[in-house]
């Protein structure tokens, strides 16, 4: 047999490490908040290919006319694309006239790549819907785990899930990454994936339980985690390979989706292995002690 890793014995190290990450995440969420994109608060995004590099102040001359706080970013392979992000609700006519001004300034050789307008109503709905979606998904998963395993496993899985959600949100807040619809899809995928990781380990615990005595709880958890460790590492690695390749291609719509996935998968694998199992051990140990 391979060396076993003493997860249970070192659990306080993992708990402390996670606690620090969670405190940083929550702290940033309270101080910086989240940078909600137009999907959630309403507004307009216009993306134009100018086919030449540009200075932000040149762009401001035009954009200041409708919103002085509009954000201007470069994009594209050669940084020749312009993305204007404003909280203003621009009508189609207004977008057309803004585009017309750019056409005048930068020759007719420019192209409107993408425009996106969302009203504030839709944003509010989306925020509510997203919260419901995440809550419903988590409840259904808990119910499934309680049904297939036991309630204590579901509690441990829930803890791991909350851990992952807080950390992903924290990364978004710390790096001021815009939160949009794709982000919600990413969060739900991370939930599914993290629970999947947790279940694979718990499945082994469930199977091994018959072979160990009640007093060997620590050995049971440590052995089960160690036996499933190669799988946990390899799966996380292969999935990260695929997702990173996609991220590096630089399509913006995909990047905003794959970035939370990358953070979430790493956090999910970590929390499944170290947090969920240690927590389950603590709960089980209390049960065993109190039954004596």
């Amino acid at each position: 047999m391979k060396k076993t890793i003493d997860i249970v014995g070192k659990r306080n190290i993992f708990f402390t490490f996670s606690a620090i990450l969670i405190v940083i995440s929550l702290g940033s969420l309270f101080i910086n908040g989240l940078n909600f994109g137009i999907d959630f608060i309403g507004g307009t995004i216009i993306q134009i290919e100018l086919n030449q590099t540009f200075e932000t102040n040149e762009i401001r001359e035009i954009t200041d006319k409708f919103d002085e706080s509009a954000s201007i970013t470069n994009a594209g392979d050669n940084q020749t694309q312009l993305i204007i992000d404003t909280k203003e609700n621009l009508t189609q006519e207004e977008i057309d006239s803004i585009y017309g001004e750019f056409e005048e300034k930068y020759d007719a050789d420019i192209e409107l790549l993408n425009s996106d307008y969302k009203s504030a109503t839709i944003g509010n709905e989306l925020r509510r819907q997203s919260l419901i979606a995440v809550a419903v998904a988590v409840l259904l998963m808990m119910a499934y785990i309680s049904f297939r395993f036991q309630f204590s496993y579901a509690m441990a899985a829930l803890l791991a899930l909350l851990h992952d959600i807080v950390i992903v949100l924290g990364v978004y807040s710390l790096f001021n990454i815009p939160v949009n619809t794709a982000f919600i899809a990413a969060i739900l995928t991370i939930l599914g994936y993290s629970v999947n990781d947790t279940i694979v380990v718990f499945d082994r615990v469930r199977e091994n339980r018959k072979k160990y005595k009640k007093s060997q709880l620590a050995e049971l958890v440590n052995d089960s985690v160690s036996q499933t460790m190669p799988r946990s590492i390899n799966t996380t690695l292969t999935t990260l390979l695929a997702i990173t390749a996609l991220y590096l291609m630089g399509v913006q719509a995909i990047q905003s989706f794959t970035l939370p996935l990358m953070v979430g998968f790493v956090s999910g694998a970590y929390s499944s292995i170290f947090i969920a199992n240690s927590f389950w051990y603590v709960v089980q140990e209390k049960k065993v002690k109190s039954s004596r």
Binding site: L140, M141, I145, G192, N196, D197, I199, D203
Partner: peptide, 10 residues
């Protein structure tokens, strides 16, 4: 078990 939880999210 792992895949069913992913389907739940889906």
């Amino acid at each position: 078990d792992g895949n069913i939880t992913t389907i739940i999210a889906g």
